[in-house]
Protein backbone atom coordinates (compact mmCIF):
# COMPACT_ATOMS: atom_id res chain seq x y z
CA UNK A 1 0.00 0.00 0.00
CA UNK A 2 2.81 2.43 0.94
CA UNK A 3 4.60 1.62 -2.30
CA UNK A 4 1.41 2.48 -4.23
CA UNK A 5 1.13 5.73 -2.28
CA UNK A 6 4.70 6.52 -3.29
CA UNK A 7 3.78 5.95 -6.97
CA UNK A 8 0.99 8.49 -6.50
CA UNK A 9 3.11 11.04 -4.62
CA UNK A 10 6.03 11.19 -7.05
CA UNK A 11 4.04 12.28 -10.16
CA UNK A 12 1.87 14.65 -8.09
CA UNK A 13 5.02 16.31 -6.67
CA UNK A 14 6.52 16.60 -10.12
CA UNK A 15 3.32 18.20 -11.35
CA UNK A 16 3.44 20.94 -8.74
CA UNK A 17 7.17 21.62 -8.84
CA UNK A 18 7.10 21.63 -12.63
CA UNK A 19 4.46 24.38 -12.75
CA UNK A 20 6.87 26.99 -11.49
CA UNK A 21 9.72 26.38 -13.86
CA UNK A 22 8.31 25.60 -17.31
CA UNK A 23 10.19 27.73 -19.85
CA UNK A 24 10.83 30.57 -17.41
CA UNK A 25 9.69 33.89 -18.86
CA UNK A 26 11.32 33.51 -22.23
CA UNK A 27 9.36 32.72 -25.35
CA UNK A 28 11.82 30.88 -27.55
CA UNK A 29 9.44 30.40 -30.45
CA UNK A 30 10.14 32.16 -33.74
CA UNK A 31 8.40 35.56 -33.96
CA UNK A 32 5.30 35.64 -36.15
CA UNK A 33 5.39 37.53 -39.43
CA UNK A 34 3.83 40.98 -39.46
CA UNK A 35 0.19 40.70 -40.44
CA UNK A 36 -1.84 43.36 -42.26
CA UNK A 37 -4.81 44.53 -40.22
CA UNK A 38 -7.89 46.42 -41.28
CA UNK A 39 -7.33 50.09 -40.39
CA UNK A 40 -11.07 50.71 -40.24
CA UNK A 41 -11.80 48.28 -37.41
CA UNK A 42 -10.69 48.21 -33.79
CA UNK A 43 -7.95 45.77 -32.79
CA UNK A 44 -9.12 42.71 -30.89
CA UNK A 45 -5.77 42.48 -29.11
CA UNK A 46 -4.63 45.99 -28.25
CA UNK A 47 -6.82 49.00 -27.65
CA UNK A 48 -7.03 52.14 -25.60
CA UNK A 49 -9.24 55.17 -25.02
CA UNK A 50 -7.26 57.44 -27.35
CA UNK A 51 -7.68 58.19 -31.04
CA UNK A 52 -7.02 55.14 -33.21
CA UNK A 53 -6.83 54.45 -36.94
CA UNK A 54 -10.53 53.61 -37.27
CA UNK A 55 -11.43 56.97 -35.71
CA UNK A 56 -9.26 58.89 -38.17
CA UNK A 57 -10.74 57.02 -41.13
CA UNK A 58 -14.35 57.38 -39.97
CA UNK A 59 -13.98 61.06 -39.08
CA UNK A 60 -12.31 62.09 -42.33
CA UNK A 61 -14.70 60.03 -44.48
CA UNK A 62 -17.70 61.62 -42.75
CA UNK A 63 -16.29 65.13 -43.24
CA UNK A 64 -15.56 64.57 -46.94
CA UNK A 65 -19.15 63.40 -47.53
CA UNK A 66 -20.55 66.40 -45.66
CA UNK A 67 -18.35 68.99 -47.37
CA UNK A 68 -19.22 67.53 -50.80
CA UNK A 69 -22.93 67.86 -49.91
CA UNK A 70 -22.60 71.57 -49.01
CA UNK A 71 -23.52 73.75 -52.07
CA UNK A 72 -22.04 76.94 -50.50
CA UNK A 73 -18.65 75.26 -50.77
CA UNK A 74 -18.69 73.02 -53.85
CA UNK A 75 -21.18 74.79 -56.18
CA UNK A 76 -19.41 78.11 -56.64
CA UNK A 77 -18.94 79.49 -60.11
CA UNK A 78 -15.16 79.46 -59.59
CA UNK A 79 -13.62 76.63 -57.67
CA UNK A 80 -12.53 78.07 -54.29
CA UNK A 81 -8.92 77.71 -53.09
CA UNK A 82 -8.53 75.97 -49.75
CA UNK A 83 -5.57 75.66 -47.39
CA UNK A 84 -5.30 72.54 -45.28
CA UNK A 85 -2.29 72.68 -42.98
CA UNK A 86 -1.39 70.95 -39.69
CA UNK A 87 -0.94 74.45 -38.23
CA UNK A 88 -4.74 74.87 -38.56
CA UNK A 89 -5.38 71.83 -36.35
CA UNK A 90 -5.14 72.14 -32.57
CA UNK A 91 -4.89 69.19 -30.23
CA UNK A 92 -6.59 70.23 -26.99
CA UNK A 93 -7.31 66.67 -25.87
CA UNK A 94 -5.67 64.15 -23.55
CA UNK A 95 -4.69 61.93 -26.49
CA UNK A 96 -1.41 62.04 -28.35
CA UNK A 97 -2.34 62.76 -31.95
CA UNK A 98 -0.36 63.31 -35.10
CA UNK A 99 -2.65 65.92 -36.64
CA UNK A 100 -0.96 65.41 -40.02
CA UNK A 101 -2.89 62.14 -40.28
CA UNK A 102 -6.19 64.05 -40.25
CA UNK A 103 -4.96 66.79 -42.56
CA UNK A 104 -3.33 64.53 -45.14
CA UNK A 105 -6.21 62.07 -45.34
CA UNK A 106 -8.85 64.77 -45.48
CA UNK A 107 -6.93 66.69 -48.11
CA UNK A 108 -6.34 63.66 -50.34
CA UNK A 109 -9.91 62.36 -50.02
CA UNK A 110 -11.46 65.79 -50.69
CA UNK A 111 -9.16 66.44 -53.62
CA UNK A 112 -10.19 63.15 -55.23
CA UNK A 113 -13.91 63.55 -54.49
CA UNK A 114 -14.12 67.21 -55.58
CA UNK A 115 -12.84 66.49 -59.12
CA UNK A 116 -11.82 70.12 -59.61
CA UNK A 117 -14.75 71.73 -57.74
CA UNK A 118 -12.31 72.61 -54.97
CA UNK A 119 -8.66 73.62 -55.29
CA UNK A 120 -6.10 73.02 -52.58
CA UNK A 121 -3.01 75.05 -51.78
CA UNK A 122 -0.04 73.24 -50.28
CA UNK A 123 1.42 75.88 -47.97
CA UNK A 124 3.25 73.22 -45.92
CA UNK A 125 5.49 72.54 -48.91
CA UNK A 126 6.33 76.25 -49.23
CA UNK A 127 10.06 75.95 -48.67
CA UNK A 128 10.59 73.60 -51.61
CA UNK A 129 8.28 75.69 -53.84
CA UNK A 130 10.08 78.92 -52.94
CA UNK A 131 13.41 77.33 -53.77
CA UNK A 132 12.11 76.18 -57.17
CA UNK A 133 10.57 79.61 -57.88
CA UNK A 134 13.92 81.23 -57.08
CA UNK A 135 15.67 78.85 -59.49
CA UNK A 136 13.14 79.79 -62.21
CA UNK A 137 13.42 83.51 -61.45
CA UNK A 138 17.23 83.31 -61.63
CA UNK A 139 17.04 81.48 -64.92
CA UNK A 140 18.83 78.47 -63.47
CA UNK A 141 15.96 76.25 -64.63
CA UNK A 142 13.35 76.85 -67.37
CA UNK A 143 9.78 78.07 -66.68
CA UNK A 144 8.17 74.61 -66.84
CA UNK A 145 5.02 73.92 -68.85
CA UNK A 146 2.37 75.71 -66.79
CA UNK A 147 1.48 79.34 -67.36
CA UNK A 148 3.41 81.56 -65.00
CA UNK A 149 1.63 83.52 -62.21
CA UNK A 150 3.17 86.62 -60.69
CA UNK A 151 2.66 85.51 -57.10
CA UNK A 152 1.46 82.25 -55.51
CA UNK A 153 -2.32 81.87 -55.31
CA UNK A 154 -4.13 83.12 -52.22
CA UNK A 155 -6.66 81.05 -50.29
CA UNK A 156 -10.41 81.64 -50.02
CA UNK A 157 -10.88 79.20 -47.14
CA UNK A 158 -8.81 77.58 -44.41
CA UNK A 159 -9.88 74.23 -43.03
CA UNK A 160 -9.46 74.25 -39.28
CA UNK A 161 -9.84 71.52 -36.70
CA UNK A 162 -9.82 71.20 -32.94
CA UNK A 163 -9.60 67.97 -31.00
CA UNK A 164 -10.91 68.20 -27.45
CA UNK A 165 -11.64 65.55 -24.86
CA UNK A 166 -13.15 65.12 -21.45
CA UNK A 167 -11.94 62.33 -19.20
CA UNK A 168 -13.86 60.70 -16.38
CA UNK A 169 -11.69 58.53 -14.17
CA UNK A 170 -12.81 56.11 -11.50
CA UNK A 171 -9.61 56.03 -9.47
CA UNK A 172 -9.87 52.83 -7.44
CA UNK A 173 -10.72 50.43 -10.29
CA UNK A 174 -8.80 52.72 -12.70
CA UNK A 175 -11.60 52.88 -15.22
CA UNK A 176 -11.08 55.64 -17.76
CA UNK A 177 -13.90 57.01 -19.90
CA UNK A 178 -12.86 59.52 -22.57
CA UNK A 179 -15.24 61.58 -24.65
CA UNK A 180 -13.47 62.96 -27.73
CA UNK A 181 -14.85 65.66 -30.00
CA UNK A 182 -13.18 66.48 -33.30
CA UNK A 183 -14.50 69.72 -34.71
CA UNK A 184 -13.84 70.64 -38.34
CA UNK A 185 -14.73 74.01 -39.86
CA UNK A 186 -14.12 75.84 -43.10
CA UNK A 187 -13.44 79.50 -42.50
CA UNK A 188 -13.44 82.20 -45.16
CA UNK A 189 -10.10 84.00 -44.99
CA UNK A 190 -11.25 87.56 -45.70
CA UNK A 191 -14.47 87.66 -43.70
CA UNK A 192 -13.62 85.12 -40.92
CA UNK A 193 -17.05 83.66 -41.70
CA UNK A 194 -17.39 79.94 -40.97
CA UNK A 195 -19.19 78.55 -44.03
CA UNK A 196 -19.20 74.92 -43.00
CA UNK A 197 -18.73 73.07 -39.71
CA UNK A 198 -19.21 69.55 -38.44
CA UNK A 199 -18.31 67.34 -35.48
CA UNK A 200 -17.14 63.81 -35.06
CA UNK A 201 -17.62 62.46 -31.54
CA UNK A 202 -16.97 59.21 -29.78
CA UNK A 203 -16.61 57.92 -26.24
CA UNK A 204 -14.41 55.05 -25.16
CA UNK A 205 -14.20 53.39 -21.80
CA UNK A 206 -11.49 51.00 -20.66
CA UNK A 207 -10.24 49.32 -17.57
CA UNK A 208 -6.89 47.63 -17.36
CA UNK A 209 -6.37 44.17 -15.94
CA UNK A 210 -6.49 44.01 -12.14
CA UNK A 211 -2.76 43.26 -12.08
CA UNK A 212 -2.10 46.85 -13.17
CA UNK A 213 -4.36 48.38 -10.56
Amino acid sequence: MQARLLYLLVPVSMLFTGCASVNGDRDNSAPPHAVYQDSATASKVVSGVGIESQDILSATDAMVRDIMATPEVVSRATAPKIIMDPAGFVNDSSSRVNVKLFVNRLSASLNRAAKGKLRFLGRAEGDLNNKERDLKANGEVDAGTIQKVKVPRGADFILRGTITSQDAVLKGPQTVRRYTNINFRLQEVDSDEVVWENNYDFTKEAQDDVIYR
Binding site: S93, S94, R96, D167, V169, L170, K171, V176, R213
Partner: peptide, 22 residues
Amino acid sequence: GNARAVVRTALAQSGFADETNY
Protein backbone atom coordinates in the same frame (compact mmCIF):
# COMPACT_ATOMS: atom_id res chain seq x y z
CA GLY B 1 -0.58 70.50 -28.12
CA ASN B 2 0.74 66.99 -27.68
CA ALA B 3 2.93 68.12 -24.75
CA ARG B 4 -0.24 69.32 -23.00
CA ALA B 5 -2.02 66.06 -23.89
CA VAL B 6 0.65 63.87 -22.29
CA VAL B 7 0.92 66.11 -19.22
CA ARG B 8 -2.84 65.71 -18.73
CA THR B 9 -2.50 61.94 -18.98
CA ALA B 10 0.47 62.04 -16.61
CA LEU B 11 -1.70 63.80 -14.05
CA ALA B 12 -4.42 61.18 -14.50
CA GLN B 13 -1.87 58.37 -14.07
CA SER B 14 -0.33 59.99 -11.00
CA GLY B 15 -3.80 60.32 -9.49
CA PHE B 16 -4.49 56.57 -9.59
CA ALA B 17 -4.74 55.18 -6.09
CA ASP B 18 -6.97 52.81 -4.18
CA GLU B 19 -8.40 55.80 -2.30
CA THR B 20 -11.11 57.12 -4.62
CA ASN B 21 -10.76 60.68 -3.29
CA TYR B 22 -7.00 60.74 -3.87
